[in-house]
Amino acid sequence: MTAQRDIDLKAYIRHIPDFPKPGILFYDISTLMRNPDAWQMAMGRLARQVAPFKPDILAAVESRGFLTAAPLADRLGCGMLMLRKKGKLPGRTVSHTYELEYGSDTLEIQEDAVSPGQRVVIMDDLLATGGTLSASAALLRKAGAEVVGASVLVELTGLGGRAKMDGIPITTLLSYED
């Protein structure tokens, strides 16, 4: 890995206009993940941001949250659980339905995924309007978790998603205004 500590990780995020629909600018993290030096740097920075929360477990939001939570849980020596779309998890689940700009969606976790009072940090790739991250926090609280923080690779600050997080501290690796 490069010894350069000031690597510009934004240089490794590809911007794709009009995806997944016209008018949306997609921030593609796959280009960051493909570069071993940049990916290691990103994981190191995330680890330094998340460690102060002292999580027992990281809650990864489907599906790109899995990509950051798995290596980060390994680095921090904590567990990881998956927040999945309805019907994707085996066994008994706890669910939470929430509204989106274009309808509704449901997230689920396995009923035994967290213990009451367990310290959880939510992990996702992107914070935009805050709907999914906020729903994740509501689901985890419903299951008895203590949501102590959230962490994302990319935040689109102009969309105001942070305001929906009900005081949950959020760390962001990269911020964009649009």
Rank of each mutant, 00 (worst) to 15 (best):
I122A: 06
D112C: 00
L46R: 03
F53C: 02
Q4G: 07
T93G: 07
M43D: 10
P90C: 03
A69N: 10
P17C: 03
Y27I: 00
E177L: 00
A51Q: 14
E177K: 00
L100T: 08
L100H: 05
E111N: 10
L173G: 00
G77C: 02
A42Y: 00
I170F: 04
G77H: 06
V50F: 01
G149H: 09
M43Q: 15
Q40R: 15
K10V: 04
T106I: 02
A11W: 07
A51R: 14
K88F: 13
V61Y: 09
E146Q: 15
A60V: 00
L173W: 04
G91H: 08
T31Y: 05
P116E: 03
I170N: 10
Q49I: 05
M82R: 14
V114I: 05
A38Y: 06
A73E: 08
G160Q: 12
L133N: 09
K85Q: 14
L76K: 10
G160D: 12
G130P: 10
L76H: 11
F26A: 06
G131R: 05
A128V: 02
M123H: 08
K21P: 02
N35C: 02
G117E: 07
L81G: 05
L139S: 08
Q49P: 03
A47N: 04
A163R: 13
L153N: 14
L159T: 05
